[in-house]
Design a binder for these strands. Structure first.
Lengths: 260, 260
DNA sequence: CGGTTCCTTGAGAGAACTCAACGTCGGTGG
DNA sequence: CCACCGACGTTGAGTTCTCTCAAGGAACCG
């Protein structure tokens, strides 16, 4: 949280906050254009649209019905997308952390089917969808990376749907967070989202999520205080979540490819 | 069902059953290469791998751990993919109907995370993944189409996960089937899969699916006898399913694009 | 220091699951 | 041709899990 604040302040006074800071980008290692040649990088940076930081939780990125002409790379913070069911309740479709791309589920449509808002203060890089697609036509590496990411997101969405019980779902969620979030100095996770968001994402009641967390605490699997969670028995969590094998994280694929 | 049989027989005596019959393909209108020029079509056909028909339900296409080097276009029948949870129960990840592509969830990995088998006698076109990707580098239209399909599948998987109750899930499932399956002469759907498959797909018990169907019958929404289902009140089903808006079907997009 | 939001816990209601039985449909073999 | 068998679908009864409603405590903000 403090980190996000600091970044906001650093970039708040620049004209093109998202564009200028590639060198300082906390997730440049996971960017689509990592390792690309200078000219590609130059084109890429010229494509980035100035985007003010989302200064506070709840700040909107786009809404249902908006034109879907951008992709958003999350630099810091956390973005959620959601649809409203007929009772007006939020149906969280995706939770996006630094390195993730918001908007990949709308490449087949002209308008957004979901609303996207910041869960915590966040920064994103916005890039016109059409220009990304055009750039990919000349750059097979980019094309394959985007394909991989789409495929990975698809596998993850399908796997998430496979969890039957509340414990399985929460366990899978925590394992996923362990893979995607950096752990703090104490080895603890700092979850950016509230219980309510987690519950809406896993289609559970917030009370159920809370109760499962409490149970995990009592059994010694985790040690949690609100959004700060120390996982003390990762293996047990993975066993619980293993009702459905999670897809291999992308970064592991990269490492394997590098080693080969 | 009879149609499938007939097709099997027709192609059973040819050497390359999947390759030769593009002209007779029941889903050529939904193929990735529809409308492409002659040379692209020729390359495409040369890429197709001979694939014997899956003659009976349960016939395997690939298994968890197998090399993931192919994409499979469903020509006829129905394919399901599933993972096994630790109790050995099938966790159905995807149900693929004619026109769908099996394997898009594994573009980011070298081995399959799921097993794929025929739900009914089926025919597929198998094409090497690497060659599809290579072809796309020279053919932006193909690239965009595959991206759209990936994106569409992703949106659908996320939407599916958003259904809270059994009635919502079954209603959404039926609406989806109405969009994807041709209706028979009487206007009735002929579901290719069993209640068990539906239940495993929607993570429900088979009894629950059965009970919901019965309830829909009593309320006059459908008129079902086993796998033959006549939808008599589509609007009501859509209202039930509309807890989460389904993504626009791809064919509607195509029509809109053609009109424009 | 209020006021708000978030998290937790409890009690009761409701939904889905499990276990069990039975009817139906298809296929097989006598 | 018919009896049998197995798989599938439906229905019922009881249990379990999750949700809803309600209250209280903890953190955050102005």
């Amino acid at each position: 949280m403090h980190l996000h604040r600091a970044q906001e302040h650093r970039t708040a006074h620049t004209v093109r906050p998202a564009t200028q800071a590639c060198d300082y980008c906390p997730v440049h290692a996971q960017c689509l254009v990592r390792g690309c040649d200078r000219s590609t990088l130059a084109v890429w940076q010229s494509m980035l649209q100035p985007t003010p930081p989302l200064r506070q939780a709840g700040a909107g990125l786009f809404e249902t019905g908006d034109n879907a002409d951008m992709l958003y790379m999350v630099r810091s913070g956390c973005i959620k997308t959601y649809a409203l069911d007929r009772d007006g309740a939020e149906c969280v479709r995706g939770l996006y952390l630094p390195g993730d791309i918001v908007g990949l589920d709308t490449l087949d449509a002209d308008v957004h089917r979901v609303t996207a808002v910041a869960v915590t203060p966040s920064q994103v890089c916005a890039v016109p969808r059409a220009r990304v697609l055009a750039l990919m036509e000349d750059n097979p590496v980019l094309m394959r990376r985007l394909m991989q990411r789409l495929s990975h997101d698809l596998a993850e969405a399908q796997a998430l749907a496979g969890n039957h019980t509340a414990e399985e779902g929460v366990a899978a969620f925590l394992v996923s967070m362990m893979q995607r979030l950096p752990t703090g100095p104490s080895g603890a996770l700092q979850l950016p989202m509230t219980r309510r968001d987690i519950a809406n994402y896993l289609r559970l009641a917030t009370e159920t999520v809370s109760r499962v967390m409490t149970r995990f605490n009592e059994r010694g699997l985790i040690s949690s205080t609100r959004q700060r969670i120390l996982v003390t028995d990762r293996a047990a969590l993975e066993r619980l979540a293993a009702a459905v094998a999670l897809p291999t994280p992308l970064y592991e694929l990269e490492q394997a490819r590098r080693a080969a």
